[in-house]
Each structure stands twice: as C-alpha cells, then as structure tokens.
Simulated assay, not measured.
Amino acid sequence: MSESGNEDRTEAPSEKRLREARERGDSPRSKELANVAVLGCATLALKATGPHIGAASRDWMRNALQIEPGLIGHPDRLTAYAGKTAAALVMPLAPLMLATIAGCFVAPALMSGLRFSSSALKADFTRLSPAAGLSRMYGRESFAELARSVLRLLLIGGIAAIVIKGSMGRLMDMPSQSLEMAVANGVDAVLRVFLALVMAMGVLAAIDAPYQRFAWRAKLKMTKQEVRDEARESEGNPEIKARARHVAREMANKRMMDAVPTADVVLVNPTHYAVALKYEAGAMRAPKVVAKGVDEMALRIRELAGQNKVTLVEAPPLARALYRQCKVDEEIPVKLYAAVAQVLTYLFQLKKWHPARGPMPQLVQVDVGADGAPDAANGAGA
C-alpha cells in the first residue's frame, strides 16, 4: 500500500504545512458564510438607509417620468441626460452597494484571515483535466454539495414563502396607496424577507463553516513519512550540521591557540591534560581559563606555551579538575580558588626569585579533593 495514500494520512497537519497552503491560496471557504455575510451587510445597510432610498427612488421616478423641455429638438443631448439620470439613481444606492462589497470580505476574514496570494492567480492547467472534472462532479464532495443545495433551497424557499405570504395583504393594498406609502411598504416588505433569509442562512452557515474548516484540515493531513521528512528538513541536513559543528570547533580551537601566548600559566598533567590560566588583578574577579585540551590538543598548548615563554606547571589533580569543571573563557569555580591561589603564589615567588637570594622556590604538589578544594594536608611551596 502506498504510504502517500489518503488512508495513511493520519497525522495532523503541521503549522508549516498549513502556512504553505494559505500562501498558495488554499484556505477554508464556506459558501454559506459568504452568502449570509453579503446578504446580512446588505440588509443592515437597507435597514439604515431604507427611508432615504425610498424617498430618493420616489423623486427619481417622478423626474424620470417628466419630459425634459431641453431635449425637444436636441437629440444629441439625450446621451448626457440618460447618464445624468442613471447617476441620480446610483448615488442613493451607493451605501447599499458599498456595504454589499464590504460583506464579501467578512467570510474570508472569519475563516482564515484576509490574505492575498499571487499563487492563486497563476494558471493551473491541471484543472482542465477531464478526469479531475469528472471526479469533482461525481465525487463525495459533489454529493455533499448537492445535499447542501437541496437543504438550502428547501429552508430558504420555505421561510421566504412564509414571510411573503404574511406580507401579502400589505402588498395587495399597494396599488391603492399613495406613491410615498407604497414605496415605504415595498421597502419594508423587502427588508422583512431579507431578515428572514439572513436568519435561515445563518443557521446553515453555523453548520457549514466548522465543517469546511474540519474538511480543509483533514485534506492537509500528513503521513508519518511526511512528518519525518519535514522534521528532518526543519532541523537541517545532518551532514551539514556536522560540518557546521566541525567548523565551529575549528574556530574555537583557533581562538584558544591565539589566547595561549597571553596566559600566565599552563597547568599540565603532565602529558594528557593542559589548561591555560590568565589573571588580571582589578579587571577579573578570579582567574579565567583561556585554553584547555587533552592529548593532541594538550601537546599543541604546551608547545605554544613553550614558544611564548609561558610557565608550565605540573599539577595533575588541579589540571584535571579545571579541565572537567571549567569552560573556555570562564572563571574558575569558587571551590578551586585556594588551589589556583597556591599556583599563582608560586609564580609570583618564581618571578621575584634571584639566585643570590637562595634556592629556587618549589611548588608543593596540590591534591584536589572530591569537592574541588585542596587537601588540607598540603600547603603551598615557598
């Protein structure tokens, strides 16, 4: 069985997949919500501007039925007069038309937010496939749409018929009414029908909108392999990541080697470990590890220290403790202060020593206990 079949798409779509779908113009859409939004905005606008539209329509009809004296004998003025008459009818209806246009943006905003996708404007010739067309016509979604259409027709048609039947008496009296009253009653009847339709379509939209969102997410479900591929893609190629880590290590090692000549002392194991320390009184709270390494790296640190006349001190327990507990460019921990202080004191005494003053100072071996502190049985050499 193919792993990409719909029956294997059991994983919820990732945020990346949903975002890519929206970017190419594939978003959840509800025709019922769009219809009720457009009709609802138009109904609200009609209710707000109904009296104005009725009065303007009455005046427009009165003017349109009158003969314009200036047109007699001047047929060339007829085009301009027709345009002026049409504009006089459009202006009162402008708020209604603008509200209807605004309603077109309500449904997309509620379903997925307003987004513009240039991908949706590109030609897609796969839509011209007869096989795809037949699958859409006779597929499961087409039968669902047919069922929704029948339900829409029965519900909306039935409610509209009930409302019109209730207003039939007022509509039958319109021929005997004055023009103003007839227009007002006509607008009121239309408004009643629209309100009833909005409520009926609102019920359909309340059912259809969640279903369309569910169907859209179900369509974008992923297979387990697609989830793994996307995770691999988002995390990056393992080979590239390994190469990046290698480059980062090389750069860190180069920075360490550049810092070794500036160190005050290099503690060694004597062969397996090497840790370079630097301390600037007043600028640092405690000595800082500027380089460290084992085996080959330790050898390179010792060689570089020898070339730059940096003092090498054999202190195996302390060198191992500093290597394990400290990072490069990090101050030594408090529990190693006393042990490192013994080494720095020895260096200070060594720099001040002169053969005329007696034998060369010697560093007593510093034993670092389990807690990192020097063994109380040992002291610093003088």
Rank of each mutant, 00 (worst) to 15 (best):
S135F: 00
N237W: 00
G186M: 13
E141N: 15
N35V: 12
D76T: 11
L197I: 15
A80F: 03
Q177Y: 00
A123W: 11
L277H: 09
A64P: 00
V343F: 05
A82T: 11
K122R: 13
A291R: 07
A120C: 03
R17V: 09
L134Q: 07
R217S: 12
A160T: 15
L110R: 02
Y346Q: 04
L347C: 10
R232A: 08
V193G: 11
A64N: 09
D8G: 07
H52V: 06
L312V: 08
P69Y: 01
S176L: 14
Q365G: 04
A281I: 05
L134K: 09
M168C: 05
R9I: 04
K335C: 13
P51C: 06
V343K: 01
L344H: 04
D371F: 10
M284D: 15
K254N: 13
S129H: 02
E141S: 13
R228Y: 00
N253D: 08
D375S: 15
V368E: 07
V187C: 10
P317C: 04
A42L: 08
G369L: 13
N253Q: 13
L134R: 08
T49R: 03
G157P: 04
Q212V: 05
C326L: 10
M97L: 15
P28G: 03
M1T: 12
A305F: 04
L322F: 11
T79R: 11
Q177G: 06
K47M: 14
P374K: 08
G306F: 01
M168N: 05
G306E: 15
N63L: 12
A356I: 09
R152Y: 05
R19L: 06
K351V: 07
A21D: 02
F214L: 14
V38F: 00
E180Q: 13
G73Y: 06
A56D: 06
Q362E: 15
A281N: 04
R115A: 13
K165G: 14
D375Q: 12
S129D: 08
D329I: 07
D188M: 04
R136H: 09
R170E: 14
A45C: 02
F105L: 14
A291N: 10
A189P: 05
Y211T: 04
I72R: 12
E331M: 13
G202H: 04
V260C: 02
G25D: 03
A215F: 01
A315N: 10
K16I: 06
V260F: 05
I159G: 02
A80S: 12
R24V: 07
D371P: 08
R9C: 07
L46F: 11
R324G: 12
M199E: 03
A55P: 00
N63M: 08
P175L: 07
A315Q: 15
L121F: 12
L179T: 14
K31L: 10
T85P: 01
L154A: 15
Q66E: 14
S142R: 05
A200V: 07
A206D: 02
L277E: 08
A182I: 08
M172R: 08
A132L: 10
V183F: 15
D264R: 02
V265Q: 03
M360A: 15
T223P: 03
Y337H: 13
T79C: 01
K16N: 10
T311G: 01
L96W: 09
I207K: 00
L128G: 02
V198F: 03
N63R: 12
